[in-house]
């Protein structure tokens, strides 16, 4: 059983990482110093919930908590909300929709401001998930910002990814086409009592058929719980089934590292005297912008005419 003390220790360990007071290892040590539980052989299942704003993600998370608790599984939720790019402040309101679980020691809910990180997660989300895992929670649910763009970062964190959309969100399905098929394990059309729900589900099924992976498309009404038991069933099957996401997560991580490395190399190249010379010629109007880009790209060994 997870007690209130674990809540406090976990909460403070997360803050320590979030605020850059220590790194993950330090936080883990701190956790142990506070008397947090040792990590057993088991590991938490991490469920990512992503999708556009207004799709009802928090309400769905509330229903999932209810379902997992009915099976006696303990649940930690990390809910990410956007920070203001101007003031860096944030209002974090996701827990309002989960408040009926507030008194349950088997449920831990933590809001995180995105702190201007892209990709739908906060910089410390990944560490927070690992700490919640260490704290002994059976399931960790990560709810992404949901500001509209495709939030691929969740792949690196979650074992199973649920992409939530709603009918008549205009370009909702369009946004999904733009890339979420790559990461979704389950599609959920929430607010299925609204007009257009079936059409959205059919659209999604067509899309899935074009892809390589078999992704279930479910319909829910999170508000009254309709369809949630089917979602739980699929989630539990995924939890107990083979870990397909491990491969995907590794692929994603390799791509991410390659991308980071490419950026690092590009920046380093731009610092060389050769690059400085090109930029000087641009400044002196001896080169057009496009010519300058081509010349610099050549130094990187990349393709020239990419623009």
């Amino acid at each position: 059983m997870i007690g209130h003390r674990v809540h406090r220790d976990l909460a403070r360990a997360i803050s320590a990482v979030e605020n850059g007071i220590t790194d993950y290892r330090g936080a883990l040590a701190q956790f142990a110093a506070f008397g947090g539980p040792p990590r057993g052989s088991r590991r938490a299942d991490v469920i990512g919930i992503t999708g556009p704003p207004g799709a009802g993600k928090s309400t769905l998370v509330d229903r999932l908590i209810e379902g997992f608790r009915a099976d006696d599984a303990t649940v930690a939720v990390i809910a990410v909300d956007p920070s203001s790019p101007f003031t860096h402040g944030a209002v974090l309101g996701d827990r309002v929709r989960m408040q009926r679980h507030a008194g349950d020691p088997g449920v831990f809910i933590r809001s995180m401001a995105s702190r201007s990180a892209g990709g739908g997660l906060a910089p410390a989300t990944r560490d927070a998930v690992r700490l919640a895992d260490e704290a002994g929670f059976d399931i960790v649910i990560v709810e992404t910002v949901g500001v509209g763009q495709v939030e691929l970062e969740i792949v690196a964190v979650a074992d199973v990814i649920v992409v939530v959309t709603v009918p008549a969100l205009g370009d909702g399905v369009q946004a999904i086409k733009a890339g979420l098929t790559e990461i979704a394990d389950i599609f959920v059309v929430n607010m299925a009592d609204r007009p257009g729900a079936n059409a959205s589900a059919v659209d999604l099924k067509h899309m899935v058929r074009e892809g390589k992976r078999d992704i279930p498309v479910l319909q829910t009404i999170a508000q009254d719980g309709t369809g949630v038991s089917e979602l739980l069933e699929v989630l539990n099957a995924k939890r107990n089934g083979e870990d397909t996401n491990a491969v995907r997560a590794v692929r994603f991580e390799v791509v991410r590292r390659a991308r980071d490395e490419a950026v690092r190399r590009a920046l380093a190249t731009l610092d060389t005297p050769d690059a400085a010379a090109v930029l000087d010629r641009l400044r002196d109007h001896e080169l057009t912008r496009n010519d300058a880009i081509d010349a610099l790209a050549l130094m990187l060994g990349g393709p020239a005419h990419a623009h």
Binding site: H4, H7, R8, A11, R12, I14, S15, S83, S84, T87, H88, G89, A90, V91, L92, G93, R95, V96, Q99, A102, G103, F108, I109, R110, S111, A113
Partner: peptide, 29 residues
């Protein structure tokens, strides 16, 4: 206003019992 002053604000919603408030304060640290 606190958000505009650069703070991170967790809002509990209405009708909270003291226990709900304390639990939220702990979990949100």
């Amino acid at each position: 206003a606190l958000r505009d002053a650069g703070m991170e604000v967790v809002y509990t919603g209405l009708h909270q019992t003291p226990e709900m408030i304390v639990n939220a304060a702990i979990q949100e640290d």
